[in-house]
Amino acid sequence: MGAFDWQVVWASLPYLAQGLGFTVQLTAVALAGGLVLGTLLALARISGPRPLALAAAAYVNIMRSVPLVMVILWFFLVIPMLTGRPLGTEASALVTFTAFEAAYYGEIIRAGIQSIPRGQVDAARALGLTRAQATIHVVLPQAVRNMAPVLLTQTIILFQDTSLVHAIGAKDLLKAAEIAGKNYNRPVEMYVFVAAVYFAICLALSLLVRRLRRASGTAAPA
């Protein structure tokens, strides 16, 4: 294959930056949407009426036991056949990742809420707080602190998983690199470069998580 030629990376930087832009956008939308939907799912499972709780549990369990690639292909290829409303690659990716991450965030949030001893709610109620006040002022602040590092870890996984939009041809960082690699016939350099970018970003984020853990006193064991 000859010597490495990094010139092609330099020449393609604008497109790689665009691709990274979509990767970040996808992560941000799935994070925001996933947190909102995930909170709803968690609340439905913890204190919703029974049919709703069951439906939420079924949703979460199905999403969590199917490979992400399959979910992406379902949303992109199969569901539009039934609904007659295709979304296009980018929108389809945004919807898929939001729906998928909601299941994972939902479980983390549920565990976070359930980690708060019941007695705390009882005590807050005894002090005269309403149920909503108890949830907002007593349960959630503690729950958020407990689950923040786990949520962040899941977000790093999400950031990496967005590369799977490759399966439907959405132009994220990996895809932009692949196209450039093909145009200049330098796929090896492009793949190595992409790996390095992902590695740098994810390592920085996971160091941040570790610092956060130490700061919040929820250090991981060992």
């Binding site: 939308v29 925001a32 909102v36 007659g84 409303r85 979304l87 919807v95």
Partner: peptide, 21 residues
């Protein structure tokens, strides 16, 4: 805002309509 948009997209995606011929 984004979340709302996504919710709307979900709703649109799930609202069944025949494939346009």
């Amino acid at each position: 805002m984004t979340a709302k948009l996504v919710l709307l997209c979900c709703a649109a995606a799930l609202a069944a309509a025949p494939v346009a011929a």
